[in-house]
Simulated assay, not measured.
Amino acid sequence: MATFEVRGLGKEFPTDPPVRALDGIDLSIGEGDFVVLLGPSGCGKSTLLDILSGLQDKTEGEVLFEGVPVAGTNSRIGVVFQDASLYPWRTVARNVEIGLEFRGVPRAERRAAAAEYLTQVGLAGFERKYPHQLSGGMRQRAGIARTLATEPAVLLMDEPFGAVDHLTRIQLQRDLLALWESRRRTVVFVTHDVGEAVYLADRVILLSPRPGRVHREFPIDVPRPRRKGDIELLALESEIYQALGRIEEQADAEL
Protein backbone atom coordinates (compact mmCIF):
# COMPACT_ATOMS: atom_id res chain seq x y z
CA MET A 1 0.00 0.00 0.00
CA ALA A 2 1.27 3.47 -0.88
CA THR A 3 1.69 6.02 1.88
CA PHE A 4 -0.11 8.65 -0.21
CA GLU A 5 -2.36 8.21 -3.25
CA VAL A 6 -3.46 11.43 -4.96
CA ARG A 7 -5.99 11.18 -7.78
CA GLY A 8 -7.43 14.03 -9.80
CA LEU A 9 -6.61 16.55 -7.08
CA GLY A 10 -7.73 20.11 -7.64
CA LYS A 11 -7.64 23.16 -5.40
CA GLU A 12 -9.34 26.50 -6.04
CA PHE A 13 -9.25 29.43 -3.65
CA PRO A 14 -12.59 31.31 -3.51
CA THR A 15 -11.13 34.77 -4.06
CA ASP A 16 -12.52 37.34 -6.47
CA PRO A 17 -11.76 36.17 -9.10
CA PRO A 18 -11.15 32.55 -7.96
CA VAL A 19 -7.55 31.30 -8.10
CA ARG A 20 -6.96 27.80 -9.42
CA ALA A 21 -3.87 26.59 -7.52
CA LEU A 22 -3.78 22.88 -8.44
CA ASP A 23 -5.42 20.93 -11.24
CA GLY A 24 -5.56 17.20 -12.02
CA ILE A 25 -2.73 16.09 -9.74
CA ASP A 26 -2.10 12.33 -9.83
CA LEU A 27 0.67 11.13 -7.56
CA SER A 28 1.67 8.01 -5.65
CA ILE A 29 4.21 8.11 -2.82
CA GLY A 30 5.44 4.81 -1.41
CA GLU A 31 6.48 3.93 2.11
CA GLY A 32 10.01 5.12 2.81
CA ASP A 33 10.20 7.27 -0.34
CA PHE A 34 12.03 10.60 -0.33
CA VAL A 35 10.05 12.73 -2.79
CA VAL A 36 10.83 16.35 -3.62
CA LEU A 37 8.25 18.76 -5.04
CA LEU A 38 9.87 21.34 -7.30
CA GLY A 39 8.56 24.09 -9.52
CA PRO A 40 8.28 27.82 -10.16
CA SER A 41 7.04 30.17 -7.44
CA GLY A 42 3.27 30.03 -7.13
CA CYS A 43 2.90 26.58 -8.70
CA GLY A 44 1.14 25.13 -5.65
CA LYS A 45 3.93 23.10 -4.01
CA SER A 46 3.14 24.31 -0.51
CA THR A 47 -0.59 24.04 -1.12
CA LEU A 48 -0.16 20.40 -2.15
CA LEU A 49 1.90 19.73 0.97
CA ASP A 50 -0.78 21.38 3.15
CA ILE A 51 -3.46 19.16 1.57
CA LEU A 52 -1.37 16.03 2.21
CA SER A 53 -1.01 17.11 5.85
CA GLY A 54 -4.71 17.82 6.27
CA LEU A 55 -4.09 21.51 7.00
CA GLN A 56 -6.06 22.50 3.88
CA ASP A 57 -9.05 20.94 2.17
CA LYS A 58 -9.01 19.94 -1.48
CA THR A 59 -11.62 21.26 -3.93
CA GLU A 60 -11.95 18.01 -5.85
CA GLY A 61 -10.27 14.66 -6.31
CA GLU A 62 -9.09 12.10 -3.80
CA VAL A 63 -6.20 12.07 -1.32
CA LEU A 64 -5.55 8.86 0.61
CA PHE A 65 -3.09 8.36 3.45
CA GLU A 66 -2.39 4.69 4.10
CA GLY A 67 -5.56 3.86 2.19
CA VAL A 68 -7.82 6.22 4.17
CA PRO A 69 -9.12 9.60 2.89
CA VAL A 70 -7.29 12.57 4.44
CA ALA A 71 -9.72 14.45 6.67
CA GLY A 72 -7.89 16.84 8.97
CA THR A 73 -4.52 16.44 10.62
CA ASN A 74 -3.07 13.07 11.63
CA SER A 75 -0.60 12.31 14.41
CA ARG A 76 1.28 9.96 12.05
CA ILE A 77 2.13 12.93 9.80
CA GLY A 78 4.71 15.44 11.01
CA VAL A 79 5.17 18.84 9.37
CA VAL A 80 8.32 20.99 9.33
CA PHE A 81 8.02 24.57 8.07
CA GLN A 82 10.61 27.08 6.88
CA ASP A 83 10.36 28.93 10.21
CA ALA A 84 10.99 26.68 13.21
CA SER A 85 8.53 28.83 15.23
CA LEU A 86 9.96 27.89 18.61
CA TYR A 87 8.32 29.39 21.70
CA PRO A 88 10.84 31.99 22.95
CA TRP A 89 9.89 31.54 26.62
CA ARG A 90 10.55 27.78 26.59
CA THR A 91 13.95 26.13 26.63
CA VAL A 92 15.03 24.08 23.62
CA ALA A 93 14.16 20.84 25.41
CA ARG A 94 10.72 22.09 26.44
CA ASN A 95 10.06 23.20 22.86
CA VAL A 96 10.89 19.69 21.66
CA GLU A 97 8.62 18.19 24.32
CA ILE A 98 5.57 20.24 23.42
CA GLY A 99 3.85 17.76 21.09
CA LEU A 100 4.26 15.02 23.68
CA GLU A 101 2.99 17.38 26.37
CA PHE A 102 -0.20 17.96 24.37
CA ARG A 103 -0.66 14.18 24.22
CA GLY A 104 -0.36 13.83 27.98
CA VAL A 105 2.94 11.94 27.96
CA PRO A 106 4.50 11.89 31.46
CA ARG A 107 7.28 14.40 32.12
CA ALA A 108 10.07 11.84 32.50
CA GLU A 109 9.23 10.27 29.14
CA ARG A 110 9.05 13.69 27.49
CA ARG A 111 12.47 14.64 28.81
CA ALA A 112 14.00 11.38 27.68
CA ALA A 113 12.51 11.77 24.19
CA ALA A 114 13.69 15.38 23.91
CA ALA A 115 17.22 14.38 24.92
CA GLU A 116 17.23 11.53 22.41
CA TYR A 117 16.08 13.60 19.45
CA LEU A 118 18.22 16.62 20.29
CA THR A 119 21.19 14.26 20.24
CA GLN A 120 20.07 12.91 16.85
CA VAL A 121 20.01 16.41 15.34
CA GLY A 122 23.34 17.44 16.89
CA LEU A 123 22.02 19.59 19.73
CA ALA A 124 23.07 17.54 22.75
CA GLY A 125 24.12 19.97 25.48
CA PHE A 126 21.76 22.71 24.32
CA GLU A 127 18.68 21.41 26.15
CA ARG A 128 18.54 24.36 28.60
CA LYS A 129 19.27 27.08 26.06
CA TYR A 130 16.55 29.40 24.80
CA PRO A 131 15.79 29.96 21.09
CA HIS A 132 17.41 33.42 21.04
CA GLN A 133 20.68 31.79 22.11
CA LEU A 134 20.77 29.56 19.02
CA SER A 135 21.81 30.21 15.43
CA GLY A 136 19.23 29.94 12.65
CA GLY A 137 20.45 26.49 11.70
CA MET A 138 20.33 25.31 15.30
CA ARG A 139 16.76 26.59 15.70
CA GLN A 140 15.77 24.65 12.60
CA ARG A 141 17.40 21.51 14.00
CA ALA A 142 15.37 22.01 17.17
CA GLY A 143 12.21 22.33 15.08
CA ILE A 144 12.99 19.05 13.31
CA ALA A 145 13.66 17.38 16.67
CA ARG A 146 10.28 18.63 17.94
CA THR A 147 8.55 16.98 14.98
CA LEU A 148 10.57 13.73 15.25
CA ALA A 149 9.80 13.44 18.97
CA THR A 150 6.17 12.64 18.16
CA GLU A 151 7.37 9.60 16.13
CA PRO A 152 5.54 10.40 12.87
CA ALA A 153 5.55 7.87 10.04
CA VAL A 154 5.80 10.70 7.50
CA LEU A 155 7.69 14.00 7.38
CA LEU A 156 6.26 16.79 5.23
CA MET A 157 8.87 19.55 4.91
CA ASP A 158 8.13 22.96 3.39
CA GLU A 159 11.44 24.59 2.40
CA PRO A 160 12.87 23.85 5.85
CA PHE A 161 16.37 25.07 4.97
CA GLY A 162 15.39 28.13 2.94
CA ALA A 163 16.21 30.67 5.64
CA VAL A 164 19.74 29.54 6.56
CA ASP A 165 23.11 30.30 4.98
CA HIS A 166 24.55 28.08 2.26
CA LEU A 167 27.06 26.12 4.36
CA THR A 168 24.52 25.51 7.11
CA ARG A 169 22.03 24.38 4.49
CA ILE A 170 24.47 21.77 3.14
CA GLN A 171 25.08 20.41 6.65
CA LEU A 172 21.34 20.29 7.40
CA GLN A 173 20.79 18.35 4.15
CA ARG A 174 23.40 15.81 5.24
CA ASP A 175 21.85 15.57 8.70
CA LEU A 176 18.39 15.03 7.24
CA LEU A 177 19.62 12.24 4.96
CA ALA A 178 21.31 10.53 7.92
CA LEU A 179 18.05 10.69 9.89
CA TRP A 180 16.05 9.42 6.91
CA GLU A 181 18.42 6.53 6.24
CA SER A 182 18.35 5.48 9.91
CA ARG A 183 14.55 5.12 10.07
CA ARG A 184 13.35 5.33 6.44
CA ARG A 185 10.36 7.52 7.18
CA THR A 186 8.49 8.70 4.13
CA VAL A 187 9.56 12.29 3.33
CA VAL A 188 7.87 14.81 1.04
CA PHE A 189 10.06 17.88 0.73
CA VAL A 190 9.31 21.21 -0.98
CA THR A 191 12.15 23.31 -2.40
CA HIS A 192 13.00 25.88 -5.09
CA ASP A 193 16.61 24.65 -5.17
CA VAL A 194 17.29 22.20 -8.02
CA GLY A 195 20.65 21.16 -6.55
CA GLU A 196 19.03 20.40 -3.21
CA ALA A 197 16.30 18.40 -4.94
CA VAL A 198 18.61 16.04 -6.83
CA TYR A 199 20.93 15.62 -3.84
CA LEU A 200 18.11 14.55 -1.50
CA ALA A 201 15.44 12.84 -3.55
CA ASP A 202 14.53 9.41 -4.81
CA ARG A 203 12.14 11.22 -7.15
CA VAL A 204 11.69 14.85 -8.13
CA ILE A 205 8.15 15.88 -9.08
CA LEU A 206 8.25 18.95 -11.31
CA LEU A 207 5.07 21.03 -11.18
CA SER A 208 3.98 23.42 -13.91
CA PRO A 209 3.14 27.09 -13.29
CA ARG A 210 -0.28 27.80 -11.78
CA PRO A 211 -2.47 25.92 -11.87
CA GLY A 212 0.03 23.35 -10.70
CA ARG A 213 0.03 20.08 -12.59
CA VAL A 214 2.58 17.25 -12.61
CA HIS A 215 4.66 18.27 -15.60
CA ARG A 216 7.28 15.54 -15.28
CA GLU A 217 8.77 13.10 -12.81
CA PHE A 218 12.55 12.64 -12.55
CA PRO A 219 13.78 9.44 -10.89
CA ILE A 220 17.10 10.13 -9.15
CA ASP A 221 18.95 6.83 -9.48
CA VAL A 222 22.36 8.11 -8.35
CA PRO A 223 23.60 5.72 -5.61
CA ARG A 224 23.79 6.93 -2.02
CA PRO A 225 25.78 8.30 -0.30
CA ARG A 226 25.96 11.13 -2.81
CA ARG A 227 28.48 13.92 -3.08
CA LYS A 228 27.79 17.49 -4.06
CA GLY A 229 29.23 18.14 -7.49
CA ASP A 230 29.03 14.54 -8.74
CA ILE A 231 28.82 14.55 -12.53
CA GLU A 232 25.61 12.47 -12.48
CA LEU A 233 23.90 14.93 -10.14
CA LEU A 234 25.04 17.88 -12.25
CA ALA A 235 23.66 16.22 -15.38
CA LEU A 236 20.28 15.74 -13.68
CA GLU A 237 20.32 19.36 -12.48
CA SER A 238 20.91 20.50 -16.06
CA GLU A 239 18.05 18.32 -17.34
CA ILE A 240 15.65 19.72 -14.74
CA TYR A 241 16.74 23.32 -15.40
CA GLN A 242 16.04 22.79 -19.09
CA ALA A 243 12.58 21.42 -18.29
CA LEU A 244 11.91 24.40 -16.01
CA GLY A 245 12.98 26.77 -18.76
CA ARG A 246 10.62 25.14 -21.25
CA ILE A 247 7.57 25.27 -18.98
CA GLU A 248 8.28 28.90 -18.04
CA GLU A 249 8.61 29.83 -21.72
CA GLN A 250 5.33 28.06 -22.44
CA ALA A 251 3.63 29.90 -19.58
CA ASP A 252 4.94 33.25 -20.85
CA ALA A 253 3.68 32.46 -24.34
CA GLU A 254 0.19 31.77 -22.97
CA LEU A 255 -0.05 35.15 -21.20
Results as ranks from 00 to 15, higher is better:
residue 120 Q to W: 00
residue 149 A to I: 06
residue 145 A to Y: 08
residue 146 R to V: 12
residue 154 V to L: 10
residue 109 E to P: 04
residue 76 R to E: 15
residue 140 Q to R: 13
residue 89 W to S: 13
residue 97 E to L: 12
residue 145 A to E: 06
residue 90 R to L: 14
residue 128 R to F: 04
residue 108 A to P: 01
residue 145 A to W: 02
residue 84 A to N: 09
residue 109 E to Q: 14
residue 120 Q to G: 01
residue 122 G to C: 02
residue 118 L to D: 01
residue 101 E to P: 07
residue 149 A to C: 12
residue 114 A to E: 04
residue 103 R to P: 03
residue 139 R to V: 05
residue 112 A to D: 15
residue 152 P to S: 05
residue 144 I to Y: 04
residue 142 A to T: 05
residue 146 R to A: 11
residue 146 R to S: 03
residue 79 V to T: 06
residue 104 G to P: 03
residue 139 R to D: 11
residue 88 P to V: 13
residue 144 I to K: 05
residue 81 F to V: 02
residue 105 V to L: 07
residue 117 Y to W: 15
residue 78 G to M: 10
residue 105 V to C: 07
residue 148 L to F: 06
residue 121 V to H: 15
residue 91 T to D: 00
residue 94 R to Q: 10
residue 137 G to A: 11
residue 86 L to C: 13
residue 81 F to Q: 06
residue 95 N to V: 10
residue 105 V to A: 12
residue 87 Y to M: 13
residue 94 R to S: 15
residue 104 G to M: 11
residue 87 Y to Q: 15
residue 88 P to Y: 06
residue 152 P to D: 06
residue 124 A to C: 07
residue 131 P to H: 08
residue 137 G to D: 03
residue 151 E to Y: 06
residue 136 G to N: 02
residue 152 P to T: 12
residue 141 R to Q: 14
residue 125 G to M: 15
residue 111 R to M: 05
residue 91 T to I: 04
residue 91 T to M: 01
residue 130 Y to K: 10
residue 109 E to Y: 10
residue 84 A to C: 10
residue 118 L to Y: 00
residue 129 K to I: 00
residue 113 A to G: 02
residue 111 R to V: 02
residue 123 L to D: 01
residue 84 A to V: 06
residue 120 Q to S: 06
residue 90 R to V: 04
residue 116 E to P: 02
residue 144 I to R: 05
residue 116 E to C: 07
residue 76 R to Y: 01
